[in-house]
Amino acid sequence: MSENHNSAGGVPTTGHVWDDDLGDFVNQPPKWWMLGLTASAIWVVVYFAMYPSIPVAINGSYWHGLGLPGSGQWTAIKELAADQKALDDVRQPYEDKLKAMTPAQILADANLSEYVARSGKVLFSDNCAACHGQNGIGTKQEGSKFAQREQGYMAPILNDDDWLYGGDIDTIYETISGGRQGMMVAHEGMVSDADIDTLANAVAKGEPTSTPLFAASGCTACHGEDGKGMHAMGSANLTDKIWRFDGSVEGIKQTIKYGVNSGNPNARIAIMPNFTEAGKLSAVEMKKLAVYVYKFGGGQPSAAPEAAPVAADAAASAASEPAAQ
C-alpha cells in the first residue's frame, strides 16, 4: 500500500485520484469478514483433501481422498447405488408378488395392474415400440421408400380389438413369451392371376365370401368359412376394417400371390421374436408387458365385455356446442 498521499478529511486513501477528487479509502474490511475469507481459503484445502476435485494419479490409480471422517468415502456412484436400492426396496414387495402370479391374476388386482402399467410403459418403449410403435399405435410403412412387400404395418397395432392370435391376457402373454411367426403360402402359380385379382377385390371390400373363389381356392382352410380368421392359426380376419398389411387391392394381391413368411423373396415378413429365447426379458417383465398391452384398449376378457349404451345425441350436441376444430 502506498503512503497516505491525500488525507482528505483526515481519511487515508490509496493515493489514486481520478475525476479530480475521487479516491479509494484504505479502510480494512471488518475483522469478521477477513476471518471468513481466511477460513474459506483453509476450507478449500480441507475440502480438497476430503473430496479431490482433480484426480491425483498414484501408481496407475488415483487418490480417492479422505472422505468425511467416520462416514466412509462418498462417491456419486455410491450415492446413486444407494438411491437405486431405496427405489428397489419400495418395488420389491410388488416384484415378489408378481413372480408367483399369472398375468390374469395381476390384471384382476387393481393395485398391481396400476403398478405394472407404469413399469410396463418403460419396458414397452424399450422392447416393443420399435416395431409396434409408441403406445402400440403401429408403424406404418408406405411410400416409395418401401418395397411393395413392405407396405402396410411393420407389426400389428396393439390398441385395437383385432387380434390375430387372440386378445385375452393369457394369449398376449403367450405371444410375448413364445413369439409368433405369420404363415401364408405363396399362391403364385397355384391360383391364376385373374382369380387373385377377383379375390383381392372381394377381400378389399371386406366381403371375401362374396366370391365362390374364396372357398374354391382353399382360403377357407385358414381364414375360415366366413373369412373371419382363426386365432389358433393366427390367420387374419378378412371381414373387418383392420389391415395387418397393405389393405389396398394391389397390396392384397401382393399378399395372396407371395404369401407371408413363405420363403418367396417377395413374401411379406411377419415375425414376432421369442422373448424367452432372446433372454432379454424376465418372466415378470413379460407379464408386465402382457398386462400393459392388454390395457391399451383392445384387451379382450374371457367373458363378453359389458357395455352400456350412453344417452348421446350427436346432432343436439353439435348444434348446442360448436366443435372445437
Partner: peptide
C-alpha cells in the same frame, strides 16, 4: 362414469364397472 354429448351411439366401455 357417464358421458354427455359426443357422437351418436357412442358407448362408454365397461360403463357399469364401478371405479374405486
Amino acid at each position: 362414469i357417464l358421458a354427455e354429448g359426443g357422437v351418436a351411439g357412442q358407448i362408454v366401455v365397461d360403463a357399469e364397472r364401478q371405479q374405486l
